[in-house]
């Protein structure tokens, strides 16, 4: 069984990325996978107010995930936060938290804003990839980058990077994962649908491989921004 867009089972859509695109932010990035585009801006560490939110033991990470009104393929997306966007903000936060050393910034906050001007499928994964580049660009201490991709079961076959078309096929299972490429640890694992244990394991393996490729793109993006520094100094 072939995929609707003739990709191989472990082949991702076309990926483009760019770092440092928002001058006012401390770190920023664009991550494009297929027709999904995510922009991430990182501000901080900075003062946190109101004061009761401050934690004297460690800094706070705040994520905001937002789909723009015109981003979908069909109806206008209602602007503002929704149950869905709040959930995704939360899982993004949890996916990125393990790599950050927040103990270094007591009483402070790191803000991540993820905006999606165009969405197809795999928005939370694109958001996490963009946010990871932006965090590194902001010069924060990180154990590792975070790479993320959606895997799943399409027509009973484990595949990587589902497109909207594949997502809408009856019986498709959608599993967004986030991976620390250095160790292969998972920081995000959600599952929508029903899947056999063996298929799940197979899908995650495919996802991990795809994440390594994404990590190479993330690395290259960051290095390209500073290429000239390398030549000169």
């Amino acid at each position: 069984m072939t995929r609707p867009d003739k990709r191989k089972i472990d082949e991702t859509r076309k990926i483009e990325a760019k770092a440092g695109i928002i001058p006012r932010a401390d770190g920023s990035a664009m991550f494009k996978i297929g027709n999904t585009i995510a922009y991430a801006a990182v501000y901080g560490p900075r003062n946190l107010y109101p004061k009761f939110l401050q934690n004297p033991q460690k800094g706070i990470l705040r994520c905001s995930y937002n789909m723009m009104p015109f981003s979908g393929s069909g109806d206008r997306v209602r602007p503002g936060s929704s149950r869905r966007s709040r959930e995704i903000s939360m899982v993004t936060e949890k996916a990125l938290m393990p790599v950050l050393n927040l103990e270094e910034y007591p009483n402070a906050v790191i803000d991540i804003f993820i905006e999606l001007p165009q969405t197809d499928a795999g928005t939370r994964c694109a958001g996490i990839c963009a946010a990871s580049i932006a965090l590194a660009d902001a010069g924060l201490v990180m154990k590792s980058m975070v790479s993320s991709i959606a895997v799943g079961l399409v027509n009973d076959e484990p595949v990587a990077d589902l497109s909207k078309e594949e997502e809408d096929i009856e019986g498709t299972v959608d599993i967004p994962i986030a991976v620390l490429p250095r160790t292969g640890e998972l920081t995000l694992l959600q599952l929508d649908g029903e899947i056999k244990k063996e298929d799940l394991q197979k899908a995650i393996e495919i996802g991990k491989k795809a994440c390594l490729k994404i990590n190479d793109i993330q690395k290259k993006t960051l290095k390209d921004k500073y290429k000239q520094v390398n030549k000169d100094v």
């Binding site: 560490p45 154990k143 520094v229």
Partner: peptide, 30 residues
């Protein structure tokens, strides 16, 4: 930082190799 036998970068920056000591000169950040 050290992770078992590896020394791993924890920041974006330029590596400075001084004999056996490795450090990173940051290029961005507050």
């Amino acid at each position: 930082y050290r992770d078992k036998e590896f020394i791993v970068a924890s920041k974006l920056g330029m590596v400075n190799v001084d004999g056996r000591a490795l450090k990173i000169i940051p290029l961005s950040g507050k």
